[in-house]
């Protein structure tokens, strides 16, 4: 919908603006396909003492007919889906609203952004942050357990991978915009709450790299799961370092 007759063009950009949305579609699309396949596969998620992050915490109620990963993954899945950074990424690349800056996209006259159902539900992001934080506690527990080889302390490549993975996931959570708000951003008078001010400053400095943490933790969780699957299927053997 052009403002006027002479401003009726899609874009005048001469640079390669298509590259970024295409790369995002490929990477995010591959992640969704891989994670869905692994969540539904319902095997090769345990290679003692390592447990795949897709299946943690491992709960396996008898009444549940399909993969137990589904009981867990909604929390980190919706946490990522409603993340402010991923929203930007998929609104641009999948929805084309807009595909790149100063490029007319697929927005319609009836555009209402996140002000109406269903996208108004993006406002629930902080609740998925709470849910994903509970899962994160279990992932830390798994990382500690990854140093326990039949009751003895040991270090395998998998132990290090699990620690790295949970570290990256923690950085992603600690750099979350909702966390930054809840920890102190909501205050108007910082000087009366010095502790929250300090925490807010910490969260703010992590938040500047939220996009980076979003991507590296995404790769981290996939590679961790892949490593455990490869060990569990016997394709590779976990190397013991200690």
């Amino acid at each position: 919908m052009a403002i006027s007759a002479t401003q009726n063009y899609t874009t005048l950009r001469t640079d390669n603006w298509r590259v970024a949305p295409i790369i995002t579609v490929i990477i995010l699309g591959s992640f969704v396909i891989y994670a869905t396949w692994r969540a539904l596969e319902n095997q090769y998620y345990l290679a003692e003492p390592y447990l795949s992050p897709f299946y943690s915490p491992l709960i396996n109620p008898e009444w549940w007919p399909i993969s137990p990963a589904i009981l867990i993954l909604w929390a980190p899945g919706l946490f990522r889906f409603t993340c402010y950074y991923y929203r930007k990424a998929y609104y641009r690349s999948f929805a084309g609203m807009p595909p790149a800056c100063a490029v007319e996209g697929r927005s319609k006259e009836s555009y209402s952004g996140e002000s109406k159902f269903p996208l108004i539900l993006q406002n629930l992001h902080r609740f998925f942050f709470y849910a994903a934080s509970i899962v994160l506690i279990f992932l830390w527990y798994d990382a500690f357990k990854a140093f326990n080889f039949d009751g003895h302390y040991g270090v395998g490549v998998g132990s290090i991978i699990l620690v790295l993975n949970v570290f990256l996931l923690s950085m992603y959570s600690l750099s979350c915009h909702s966390f930054r708000h809840l920890i102190g951003g909501k205050l108007n008078v910082f000087s009366s709450c010095p502790t929250r001010f300090t925490l807010w400053k910490g969260a703010s400095s992590l938040n500047e790299r939220h996009m980076l943490w979003a991507w590296v933790s995404l790769f981290g969780v996939c590679l961790t799961d892949l490593y455990i699957r490869l060990v569990a299927t016997g394709v590779i053997t976990d190397m013991r370092l200690v």
């Binding site: 929203r87 930007k88 800056c101 209402s112 996140e114 915009h177 708000h181 500047e208």
Partner: peptide, 28 residues
């Protein structure tokens, strides 16, 4: 209409004063 913003950050990209419009104002 803050709900209209879908945080796609083009405002931040073009701001000549480098104000972090989306991260520091709109999202909060």
């Amino acid at each position: 209409g803050v709900g209209f913003c879908n945080i796609t950050k083009c405002c931040t990209e073009v701001c000549p004063e480098n104000i972090r419009i989306t991260d520091n104002a709109i999202i909060p």
